[in-house]
């Protein structure tokens, strides 16, 4: 119970901080959405429109108004399309979740397996895997994406007909990051005392790998995966724009560029929530896997 309360308190704190940071940052950014849409119109019309949005009030009052609306669960409407932000979020979150799910699935499977293979010393295969992992983290994603579009998609009937392509590209790169973390953890722990002890005790090597090394070395990877999941769910901006995915990342980018305050706020709050939940999830999972943490 206390745990849940503490979690709730920290979640509310995080959300409030995220909302406030965004509020301040947005108002510091030059320009606004009215200017961007009504730059040809008269100054009077612009002034009226700003007044309708209460932008003529002191910033403190605007902030209070914003927080009150937030407490009531109101995210407002887009300054460009007038659509409720909740509706836009729901619509744009779908492509993002889909892409995140498939690329994370690919990444986790290939990342963990690849990392393990690269870490245990089966000379040639491990070397090949190390190279592939190296490529996955060192080739820029828009380079891979561009290649895939120009070389692969063009022969398969286009990007829109092959929705697996962005997931493959994203999964390949994300998996590389996971694989490196797995690989380095395993290598670190292979040197650890308890593993040496196990070896000295004459335990069977594969037993050691599974029971001692993997269990411990995959622990930090859980956090890493949660973090990557967060990144993916917060919208892979480049992948989304390369492959024409109307997801959260592009939405946020456009909203920031167009100074669409309510939309930026909504997206940030949503991503923050996703991160909070994922973190909590990873923590619970880590605790379950490592009983020592519960003491």
């Amino acid at each position: 119970m206390i745990n849940i309360l503490r979690f709730a308190a920290s979640a509310v704190l995080t959300l409030w901080l995220a909302a406030s940071l965004t509020f301040v940052a947005l108002r510091l950014l030059p320009g606004d959405a009215i200017q961007a849409q009504y730059w040809e119109a008269s100054a009077e019309l612009q002034a009226t429109l700003r007044q309708n949005l209460h932008w003529d009030e002191p910033i403190g009052v605007q902030y209070a108004r914003f927080l009150l609306a937030l407490l009531r669960g109101e995210l407002g409407v887009s300054l460009y399309t007038g659509r409720p932000v909740t509706e836009i979020l729901a619509e744009r979150f779908l492509p993002t979740t889909e892409l995140a799910f498939w690329s994370l699935s690919i990444a986790v499977v290939w990342g963990i397996l690849g990392g393990i293979i690269a870490a245990i010393d089966i000379t040639v295969i491990s070397a090949i895997f190390r190279l592939i992992i190296g490529l996955a983290v060192s080739v820029p994603i828009y380079w891979t994406g561009t290649l895939v579009i120009f070389v692969v998609a063009i022969h398969l009937g286009g990007v829109r007909e092959n929705s697996a392509l962005p997931a493959l590209v994203l999964g390949f790169h994300t998996g590389g990051v996971i694989a490196r973390s797995v690989q380095s953890n395993i290598q670190d722990i292979k040197q650890a005392d308890f593993v040496r002890t196990a070896h000295a005790k004459g335990l069977f090597p594969s037993y050691i790998v599974v029971q001692h090394i993997l269990r411990v070395s995959l622990l930090p990877v859980v956090h890493m995966i949660a973090l990557q999941a967060g990144f993916l769910l917060s919208g892979a901006v480049i992948t989304e724009s390369l492959f024409q995915r109307a997801g959260i990342g592009l939405l946020l980018l456009d909203a920031v560029q167009g100074r669409d305050y309510p939309v930026v706020q909504g997206v940030v709050l949503m991503i923050a929530t996703v991160f909070i939940l994922l973190n909590r999830f990873a923590e619970l999972l880590t605790h379950q896997l490592d009983p020592r943490l519960n003491s």
Partner: peptide, 8 residues
């Protein structure tokens, strides 16, 4: 930190 993470 979590608030910052909410921005790609």
């Amino acid at each position: 930190l979590n608030a910052l993470l909410a921005f790609p």
